[in-house]
Design a protein around this nucleic acid. Sequence first.
DNA 1: GAGCACTGC
Length: 629
Amino acid sequence: METVGSGGRLDSGGLDRSRSSSKLVALLVFFPPACFRFSPQLSARVAEEMGVTLGEEVGYTIRFEDLTNSGTTMIKFLTDGVLLREMMDDPLLTKYSVVMVDEAHERSISTDILLGLLKKIQRRRPDLRLIISSATIEAKSMSAFFQTSKRRRALEGEELGPRMDPAILSVEGRGFHVQIHFVEEPVQDYVQAAVSTVLLIHDQEPMGDILVFLTGQDDIDAAIHLLNEEAQTNRKHSSGLILLPLYSGLPRAEQELVFSPTPRGKRKVVISTNIAETSLTLEGIVYLVDSGFSKQKFYNPISDIENLVVAPISKASARQRAGRAGRVRPGKCYRLYTEEYFSKEMSAEGIPEMQRSNLVSCVIQLKALGIDNILGFDWPASPSPEAMIRALEILYSLGILDDDAKLTSPAGFQVAEIPLEPMISKMILSSNELGCSEEILTIAAVLSVQSIWVYGRGVHRELDEAKLRFAAAEGDHVTFLNVYKGFLQSGKSSQWCHKNHVNYHAMKKVVEIREQLRRIAQRLGIVVKSCERDMQVVRKAVTAGFFANACRLEAFSHSGMYKTVRGSHEVYIHPSSVLFRVNPKWVVYHSLVSTDRQYMRNVISIDPSWLIEAAPHFYQHHGQNSFGK
DNA sequence: GAGCACTGC
């Protein structure tokens, strides 16, 4: 918060309390997802320093919590998604006089949309002050992005007026010096190299904790296994090491272990995914081992498939990782790649998420904000035209956009109101006519969390047995209804969850999301009604949202091979699905995961005639034969 | 017969 106080340019803006009586003058500080966990604490700290009550002059808003008072709040902390939602009702952000975007260099989809919108609304609101805070490495491109408008406006002969350029702040963390080491020769196996490096540090360096960046759970488990093996064969090397894995899928209690203080004479080794790069901060790290890789999402607009792949990180990421070693005293960073690779081949910045994603949600948000010319929108990083066109095509087929690529009424506007993937939102709208909203809201909430099951090493069999207790012949979606019912009947018991291999935290979130959806549904005039035991209407509603993911079992296929109706891609039912090996002739899936094969996750059996009912335009060219018995 | 980097509304 020093940046706010030290600028000296905000003196007549949002902090002048005397003006708040006549008009709400608010300084709004927005944080991207990575800082989500901290915004309540941050606002509490600011409230404390100002000597005011949290929720009055200073407050915060995150998805399920709004601790602000519209009459008195002058400084509000919020997340990117919340601000985008606010802009749908108030596109010019008239309630605010200053907007500060923090961590803009992270370049999430929401941040990029917001930067584009803020640049646009500055034309209409020259009095709005913008402060963009970004890491040094990205500050230049941020500044360039906002500068172009000025040049373009001058070219267009527009009066430049009193509008000031946004203040671009680059605030580097004040860390201690971190000494960087590179490997001499490229390494073949970064897991093995990371393990050797940890042992070398432990052998030769003074006490201090080690943080290792690998790519995912598999790598992390493998590294821990190797280190444990070493401990058994060579006690001297590894005695005193406390090995701690860290990734988001880890149960909460195990995650917390990384924050416990290191006992005297011991050395903590945290082996982590990217979660420790930005989302959470470990104190006391002195040595850092950087594999140079992370898992990143990539999107193929031709096949409409998002893939998670191991890819080299950027220089910006490498610097961020190194900085994690210098928080308490000077540290050392061991990079498992050569200096030449770093300087010559590593890209300066990562690819913005916008250019690596399916854009249906992004397009619908912009449409709801009244931005019609999506291709001409002034993006900080333009998405590919192919991805844009694919998104428009999908939204058109769902009946969310019309022939002129405008939101349809009411469906398009209603879908934009629902904070979920458009296909799930469409499913909810359809459930109204089919009379099964009660059930579909539950399914929508479950599909919005990562997984309601507890999965882990070596518990596949137990999980399978637990699933059988809830399994429904129709498929995974109906199975979710059984789990939800059981959870409610148990009185939302954590023991019940534990006994059934159900993730308690996920189920609590399901309840929370479902409640939010129920409120929105009622506002949209959806009658929240149950279809009781009629699961056919539930399957029809799922089909109405997910018809584009329809697949047909290949005739004479004993391997369970399906082909997508749309693109004839080869896909299989994932072994975790209740329909695995059941192989109904026709299914729709919620999402694909790609490993050696494309696996369908969350699958439900359907009747092909429902596809033509749900999306006549989408399927008419396939003709009668595609749907033959 | 086996997957899930990280977030958010």
